[in-house]
Design a protein around this nucleic acid. Structure first.
Lengths: 343, 343
DNA sequence: TGGTCGCCTGAAACCGGTTTCCGTTAACCG
DNA sequence: CGGTTAACGGAAACCGGTTTCAGGCGACCA
């Protein structure tokens, strides 16, 4: 119960002042004499009054909330994303609404509904239809994370192509592996799509024929284990397995070690993301570091800016740099960090 | 912009009716003649009017939102939890607010602030102070997930003790391992605390001296790798490593295999949760299956009930059953499922 | 002492919906 | 044909805040 019945009018009555004065005191706006302020604060203190969020939001025409939309939660990537977003939103006194569209047929509708409850939304690339994205952008500021938006919708993403090209060329040239496979589903997300494209382009740039198609699995460790099962059983075993993220790579690694294969001697494995565990496994995983938390934090900042200062709402694309991390799983001798890349 | 300027009064003017009629039509409440309904629907359709959520919420005295509070996101456990919660909230047209308290000093304050923006909150056990929990429960219905609440705060948790006792006895008796260690921090969460207590109790029940203290690490795969480093290097190597969750266990497994140890011949490893990957690694992981998604879904249902029908708000504890899953990592020959327990 | 200015204050309008309450009208019945 | 009733629609109150606007009052100045 507590402060159920307490309204600004009730406090005004108790303090013997007008509601306007109570509002001024509780917000610190306008001029209020010391005597009035004391009386109001006393009444507020005594009865434990806290202004109702809905009333305040209605008057302000602002929800004080930000939305985050993602396809489904799997693995450290999304948890980092959420935490990065949240860490930026909370200090601005904005609460965070989440929406998992995964496996729901009416996600477009759900997202538009969310648009009516928040001041701005970050949408993970590839999550909803472009039409829904545009409609959403008509009602609130929107930022696409890890992908690019249609029209003038701004976006924040990592430089997938640069580092994936470097990684692929590293395997093809330095380690002279000409029989690589790619594990990950390019249809699944813009990120994977870019990585696959860069993987192909790097092959062409050094004159090696790439595989015709990727091993299209989703992004979890279990999928990596299954892919390993399929890949490493076959007789013409690939020399290197380039995975769309670290989770798949760890699954492949576990699968390979479980079959008695040596990494990197028998097969090379690489990941993407540089999750904390990548440096700790044996052999340590060669991968690409991308600033996932920072990606989401930047998205939150863009939205908060667009909300509070609509006149300078950006509509450009932010591309954060990534970094190739060479470790033992690709055949390199020890931990070393190759040059960064990207914007 | 779209429906920016559109209010119920504007639609009423355009349709030539009163605001009450517009409200009745758009909500399907009360009696409205066919002619009026047609005129109103036409105006709504033509201008794309959607009632404002804030105005509606203010009038209804209900936010249409549920809160979920957790310490920090790490691993599949929390992602399952979130998705379970969300899957139950969304069909009830409630949006989900999240709050990571991790590493923030003012979490109690943040949680109380959240309490003013939602209709009910689920709090993961051990996340905030009991005082804050009680104050929160004064303003909105609260359910503790994976833990027990103070006072009359209801809770939903899994039967940790039953299955952990079975697992420990299984290792001590069936496999005759008398030198077990426990990896996980009982201070970290009520779940781990219960599991550690059951681990100790099982030792006593069969007359074996348990280890004096757990290896207190947090719950991520990287922590397991580090724990393995510490445990398996020492000369009096433990015969079995009982981990507080699957992620730690996978880390220990990777660490052990990386050091050239054989599992289960050289060391036995067990987990908790039965994450998807547990069945796929080699050797497959002996663990305890707990219904994480269902845990969160049940919490969401309890809250939704308490919100819509306060008179029959529960204040009891729900304990969901868990199930011992014996696989190869404990030395058992093949996949087999031992009897369930709990509830 | 009269006028002006600036600081405080409160009444009322406003944000965008829902709901109560009452008057009108048509239908139905005796 | 008069009377009762049910169906319908609109004016206004309400949800709980913020903000505008006008007026009161004391201080300062001439």
């Amino acid at each position: 119960m507590g402060n159920s019945r307490l309204t600004v009018r009730e406090i005004a009555r108790l303090a013997g002042v007008s509601v306007a004065t109570v509002s001024r005191v509780s917000n610190g706006t306008g001029q209020v004499s010391e005597e009035m302020r004391r009386r109001v604060l006393e009444a507020i203190e005594k009865h434990g009054y806290r202004p109702d969020h809905l009333g305040r939001a209605l008057a302000a025409g602002r929800h004080g909330a930000l939305g985050l939309v993602f396809p489904g939660l799997s693995g450290p990537y999304f948890t980092e994303l959420i935490q990065g977003f949240e860490s930026e939103a909370v200090p601005s006194r904005a609460s965070v609404h989440i929406l998992c569209t995964h496996l729901r047929s009416d996600s477009d509708q759900q997202v538009l509904e969310m648009g009516r409850r928040v001041d701005g939304v970050a949408v993970i690339g590839g999550t909803i239809s472009e039409l829904a994205l545009l409609r959403l952008a008509e009602m609130v500021p929107v930022v696409v994370v890890a992908g690019t938006g249609p029209g003038a919708v701004p976006s924040v993403r990592a430089d997938n192509a640069g580092s994936m090209a470097m990684l692929t060329r590293h395997l093809l040239v330095e380690h002279e592996l000409t029989d690589l496979v790619f594990v990950g589903n390019p249809e699944g997300s813009p990120d994977v799509s870019e990585r696959w494209a860069a993987f192909l382009a790097a092959h062409r740039s050094v004159g090696v024929t790439p595989p015709a198609a990727p091993i299209a699995v989703s992004m979890q460790q279990a999928d990596g284990v299954l892919a390993a099962e399929q890949l490493l059983r076959g007789d013409p075993r690939p020399a290197g397995v380039v995975c769309a993220n670290d989770e798949i790579a760890l699954g492949v690694l576990v699968g390979a070690l479980g079959r008695g294969l040596r990494v990197p001697q028998d097969v090379v494995i690489t990941g993407f993301d540089d999750a904390p565990v990548a440096a700790l496994v044996n052999p340590a995983l060669t991968t690409v570091r991308q600033p996932v938390r920072e990606l989401a934090a930047e998205a939150a900042r863009l939205i908060l800016t667009a909300v509070s200062e609509p006149e300078r709402a950006s509509s450009g694309d932010v591309v954060l740099p990534t970094e190739l991390v060479l470790r033992r799983s690709c055949g390199c001798p020890a931990n070393l960090t190759a040059g960064g890349s990207g914007s």
